[in-house]
Amino acid sequence: MLNESRIKLMTKMASFEANEGKRSVSIGTYFRGDYIGKEVIKSVIYGTIAYVIVFALYVAYDFEFFLQDIYKMDLLGFGKEVLFNYLKLIVAYSMITYVVYALRYQKARRNLRCYYNNLRRLNSMYRKEELEKNK
């Protein structure tokens, strides 16, 4: 027999699964540290790509200067500066990523907790129906 309140609950849960739930469920498969760590590593990779591109552009911009002064300039000092700037960028980018994805993880867990509570409610509804049938 069809149960009205059960159908309502199932509708809402299906709606959640179709929208926000997709992302929340995929996030929920990770531990917090694993999820944030994965995203920070991704950011480090993207940050490195971005830095390499910008550095290439910088070299292309000052190409004549580099060709003329390559033997005169302090290459070690220049390398240190480049590395230091890279580290600054990566640390800043990783920190922003950490904060953003920690908040996203927290939100996803909250949604999932709510979803699992609904699952429990649904289960109890089925159990009640079973009991009523058996009577």
Partner: peptide
């Protein structure tokens, strides 16, 4: 239908906003 039947097999179920909740979660 859920409670009794009608001709086209459709029934109105009234859900309040609170029941739907944000993101469709109860």
């Amino acid at each position: 239908t859920i409670n009794g039947s009608n001709k086209n097999g459709t029934k109105r179920i009234i859900l309040s906003d609170e029941e739907i909740g944000k993101d469709g979660i109860v």
